[in-house]
Write a protein that binds this DNA or RNA. Structure first.
Lengths: 153, 153
DNA sequence: GTTCCCCTACTCGGATACACTTTGTCCGAGTATGATCGG
DNA sequence: CCGATCATACTCGGACAAAGTGTATCCGAGTAGGGGAAC
């Protein structure tokens, strides 16, 4: 079970946004600083999350990202599927009714069970749990809170 | 949940061997024909299985592979871990105690749960179930009781 | 004071280059069995 | 007839090339808000 780097960053990004729900729009640059990654990389993750409706975005000059949903209603499953696509059973062979079909069907069933249990487990972890205890402390150095009214509205 | 091609072939190979337990040593070439793949590819899968003790091999002129264990005692988990290595939780980041540690620890816990449930599910499917009803000798189910039905949604 | 227009700061989304993992193929080496040949 | 030697058919295991997938970076386009100029 390897959680991809993208999925990991996505989860941490959403956890971060959940601690700053009262700070208006958070720019991708600040999320990137928090995660210690280039802005472009953060952008890609945030865009994927926003496209799937896990987080929200605001266009324009004083735009940015923010978490509108309640943190305890956003689960790891939503985050992972937003950036990696749906978790669905997949077999690299097709049943070509040549005597192999039966064991392949059995394999497919097993695959279904595994995928289902993965989704179930991921759906049990919420962003509220991830962010528990980080209480919005602006991490490490960076210029996070400096800029003037960038966090308007 | 993507079952790798190697793992799929391994499962089908073991299922095949389980139907020929009374035929002595089965050569890699025959397994390859059954799976419609090159002998070399079958060899690699069979070797990995034999190294881990899932199946057995016999060296020399009239050598080959065979399944000594009872089919209902060999599970998908053993097969998958034999060819893909152990299924263990893995995060592409390390906790470097800088404020990120808490959400990362929470992620790690979630990852542990997912990995555990994957192993549990894979361990519930036996080779006897896979080979059930294959061409040739049917496998006598012993503690089968497969629960079928709408598991995926 | 009001309106219009431009400038800036940000997101959006595709395209591309890179790295890593998986997969497929090949080759040399080792081992057991059967056949052959000499005693 | 018996035993030692050789040839054969298979597995073993590493090495390597090819393909696929995930990751990092870049660039142009679009959008909203603020500031300045004209009226």
């Amino acid at each position: 079970m390897k959680l991809s780097k993208t999925a990991t960053l996505a989860a941490l990004a959403v956890a971060y946004l959940s601690t700053r729900r009262n700070d208006g729009h958070i720019q991708a640059r600040h999320v990137a600083d928090y995660l210690h990654i280039p802005t472009d990389s953060a952008l890609k993750v945030l865009q994927a999350l926003a496209r799937r409706g896990v987080i929200n975005s605001h266009l324009g000059r004083s735009g940015g990202y923010y978490l509108e949903n309640e943190p305890h209603n956003v689960t790891l499953l939503q985050i992972v599927e937003a950036v990696e696509g749906p978790i669905e059973p997949e077999l690299p062979v097709e049943s070509d009714g040549n005597g192999l079909s039966n064991p392949i069907d059995q394999l497919r069933k097993a695959c279904n069970r595994v995928a289902h249990s993965m989704r179930h487990e991921l759906d049990r972890t919420t962003v509220a749990e991830l962010a528990e205890g980080m209480n919005g402390t602006p991490i490490t150095p960076i210029l996070a809170t400096i800029e003037e009214g960038g966090i308007a509205h």
